[in-house]
């Protein structure tokens, strides 16, 4: 949460990179690749099955195979692998790697010594159990993050939010999610414009105390604008036929490829489940 650079520059850059990433994700979702051609409902179910499989797996080799399958799916879906690896490794997995490193030493994970050093009278030991625990942890995180990112960049965001209805989530939540998604863009644009205005009128050099006041007044201003917007949005909803109960159009279609893909994923997951319980 702590970053260097000036807070005005940082906020403008944050808003710009949010828009850049969103546009890129929409471009990926519009490609004519394998995952993009699947029905979002079937795709979401199969990806959740993979993520659950990753959560339950205790074997590093199985995790490596699932990760390889994820990269193959990304390639088949015409996702640039360089971009995908950058997008999935930076920040969460690298952070996880950083916090997993101490766990390989005997001070945190006692066990059979793999490597021993003596530095200035202190013995440093890397244990087999520690190394395995840290590798399993990092592999689990990177594989899960990769599947989650692959799902979000190969599916149009609105379709992904509508898929939630499949899990019997009340329509009010689905409607709120869809509306929230739209307002996020509006508000981020407001933040970008506000900070650009501050930068052009008063510059970026100011004391941290003055800066905190500027941030707080902007958050307060955004809240007031949001609250006023509520009335206009409600009138717009009424004029479009809103009667208290939200209606969501369902335009999903399944094809033979969807059912074959679902069958294949079910077979793979059932096999992994069987192997896990047979070796347990």
């Amino acid at each position: 949460m702590l970053k260097n650079h000036n807070f005005i520059e940082r906020s403008i850059m944050g808003a710009l990179s949010f828009f850049k990433e969103s546009i890129f994700a929409e471009e990926c979702a519009s490609q004519k690749g394998f995952l993009q051609s699947l029905d979002p409902r079937i795709k979401a179910i199969t990806f959740i099955l993979f993520i659950l499989q990753i959560l339950f797996t205790k074997d590093i080799i199985v995790l490596l195979c699932i990760y390889a399958a994820c990269l193959l799916l990304a390639k088949l879906s015409k996702i640039d692998l360089g971009f995908f690896l950058k997008r999935t490794w930076v920040f969460i997995p690298l952070f996880s790697l950083f916090i997993a490193v101490p766990a390989i030493f005997s001070i945190f994970t006692p066990g059979a010594a793999l490597i021993t050093w003596r530095v200035g009278g202190i013995t440093i030991i890397i244990t087999r159990q520690g190394l395995e625990a840290a590798t399993l942890f990092v592999m689990r995180v990177i594989t899960s993050v990769s599947f989650a990112v692959l799902l979000s960049i190969t599916t149009k965001h609105f379709a992904l939010l509508k898929v939630l209805r499949l899990f019997k989530i009340p329509q009010i939540f689905v409607m709120t999610l869809g509306m929230c998604y739209r307002y996020v863009y509006l508000f981020i644009e407001v933040i970008e414009n506000t900070y650009l205005a501050i930068k052009s009128r008063v510059g970026i050099r100011m004391s941290p105390q003055r800066g905190r006041h500027i941030v707080a007044s902007n958050i307060a201003g955004l809240w007031q604008r949001s609250y006023q917007l509520n009335k206009d949005v409600y009138k717009a909803m009424l004029s479009r036929g809103y009667s208290g109960e939200p209606l969501i159009l369902d335009d999903f279609k399944t094809t033979l490829i969807d059912w074959l893909w679902l069958f294949a994923v079910l077979v793979v997951n059932a096999t992994l489940l069987y192997l896990r319980y047979r070796t347990a």
Binding site: M179, C180, Y183, L186, S226, M237
Partner: peptide, 9 residues
């Protein structure tokens, strides 16, 4: 709409 607007906030 306030729930959605607050969520975005």
């Amino acid at each position: 709409p306030i729930l959605a607007i607050s969520a975005a906030f």
